[in-house]
Design a protein around this nucleic acid. Structure first.
Lengths: 213, 213
DNA sequence: TGAAATTTTGCAATGACTCCAAAGTTTCAG
DNA sequence: CTGAAACTTTGGAGTCATTGCAAAATTTCA
């Protein structure tokens, strides 16, 4: 089954609603846009909006699907002889470096941040996203290290690793909000990543090293 | 001026409303209690409730005033030759040890956690509380170390220090939710604190050491 | 004791979100 | 091609948090 008309239509509708909403939010702010307005602008009923999105905040974060297990994925995909933390550091560096060439990726990121900045509900959502990331990392670490049931270590390690990720993005967000240039920010973040790595203990940097096959 | 009748009454009313609300939340859960019910149970109008508390969640967290600057206070009050991180570790140990004798302090803490557990809005509030704590720590560290304007170190260090605090409380919360005995949990947390300390790098443990007078 | 300051309250309104049953569409077997 | 089954969209009514406003009650103090 390729994909029925029904499926395709649903996905399009969903995408369209989310796009329209995001546009409106960026234009006028999260609070200043009512769900009713979004529905009207997207040519659907309010109920349809709620059919796709459980809450208003989800309209804004729809594009961030796949973010929740980023770190866990990176960890599982780490190379032989590489630890969980080092894998995450490497991937982060890669991602940040990849921005310089294609700066376009970050265009508009500041307006995006601005919306979040002054909408408490959106910030809450970001936090629960962090929580999800953390939980996924814990699961990954448990599986990768075969830690015992009550072992608190995977949890602590996940905390450290997620902290790295979070520190980077909070920093990026802050800089973008102040209007810094993407290229400059990306260069600066590479330095930050070095600082961060220096702050991690050997224990953390060497946790969950994948056996060299 | 000692304190007018008006002031006293206000404080009593506030306290009473919050108490009534907390009781109801613990009895039936956050969602299952409407602000109107709380108002009625406290013999005030709904508007009066909103006079004192900006949002429903604040009714539950009113008692946690003073929590926001705990860490910052601990850091500022650290002893000569002691670093910020070590001060926090010491205070945390002290607090945890102090629980064993007076176990009463933690009675009911599990029901308290339960309410938070299944009320997303309450969890959000906890997160913003963490954020407040973090921000206060950053300010404290900046002042104590005289770090330069753009120096990202205080922020990173604050992240590590707050992580310690958070790890401890998340752990306590989880254990209490599972119905563990307070005394047992407290003993276990002391071990956890050792694990945590071992995970911190020297850099973190030795940041912002107060000069020996 | 009475006017000024402050708090409490009632009323009305907005907006997010839920429930339900009535259309409207799409799918698919016959 | 056709009609019933499955699914989506919609309208409408209702709950609840939260806000704004002006009247009513209370407290303060000269």
């Amino acid at each position: 089954m390729a994909e029925g008309l029904r499926e395709r239509k649903k996905r399009q509708t969903r995408q369209y609603i989310s796009d329209v909403a995001t546009h409106l939010f960026i234009e006028r702010g999260f609070d200043a846009v009512t769900v009713a307005e979004i529905a009207e602008a997207a040519n659907v009923s309010v109920n349809t909006v709620y059919n796709y999105f459980p809450a208003k905040e989800d309209l804004f974060f729809d594009r961030s699907a796949g973010v929740a297990d980023r770190l866990a994925r990176w960890i599982r995909a780490r190379g032989a002889g590489e630890s969980a933390a080092r894998a995450v550091l490497r991937e982060l560096r890669g991602e940040v470096e990849a921005v310089s060439p294609r700066i376009g990726l970050m265009a508009g990121y500041d307006r995006f941040m601005r919306v979040i900045q002054d909408a408490p509900p959106l910030r809450s959502r970001l936090w629960s996203l962090q929580q999800e990331i953390h939980d996924n990392v814990v699961v990954a670490l448990r599986e990768e290290t075969g830690a015992e049931e009550g072992d608190p270590l995977p949890d602590l390690m996940a905390g450290q690793i997620c902290w790295v990720h979070q520190a980077v993005f909070v920093h990026i967000g802050r800089e973008m909000l102040v209007g810094r240039e993407p290229a400059e920010v990306s260069r600066e973040v590479l330095v930050l990543l070095d600082d961060i790595e220096e702050l991690l203990s050997e224990k953390v940097l060497d946790y969950a090293v994948r056996a060299v096959s």
